[in-house]
Design a protein around this nucleic acid. Structure first.
Length: 119
DNA sequence: ATAGTGACTGCCG
DNA sequence: TCGGCAGCCACTA
């Protein structure tokens, strides 16, 4: 029997978080080859409306060689969201997308009309 | 407890 | 078209 309220609250919080992450990865794995989805779109499909930032955190956690196609998730403007923490990782994301046939404008943008995944 | 930060978004001037 | 900003909420020191 737990005698520490904060301990149980923390565990409940962690369970909730893990289930959110699981839901996010499940959706991201469904994005087909050659298509992209936005953070907000993934959040909505994972039943986590308006929590685009959580999707960003979830993707930050995945291993770069994971089976989760994290590189197919971009922001609502059609750009790759850069982070100071992944030096070169943003370049890897772009090269992986280009390898799937996705084209970038000279401004580094993807045409969402054409390349966004419609579930 | 709390203030600062961010792999986000949509609105507004 | 574009930058600024509030809302957002998980995470950290």
């Amino acid at each position: 029997m737990p005698n520490n309220r904060e301990g149980t609250a923390l565990r409940a919080y962690q369970r909730k978080l893990v289930s959110s992450y699981t839901a996010i990865y499940k959706i991201v794995r469904q994005i087909p080859y050659g298509k992209v989805a936005t953070y907000g779109q993934v959040a909505e499909l994972a039943d986590l409306p308006r929590r685009a930032r959580l999707v960003g955190y979830a993707l930050f956690r995945v291993d770069i060689n994971s089976d989760v196609p994290w590189h197919r998730v971009i922001n609502a403007k059609g750009e790759i969201s850069e982070s100071p923490f992944r030096q070169g990782g943003d370049y890897l994301q772009r090269s992986r997308l280009e390898a799937e046939g996705i084209e970038f404008s000279p401004q580094g943008k993807i045409n969402l009309e054409k390349d966004q995944w419609r579930s």
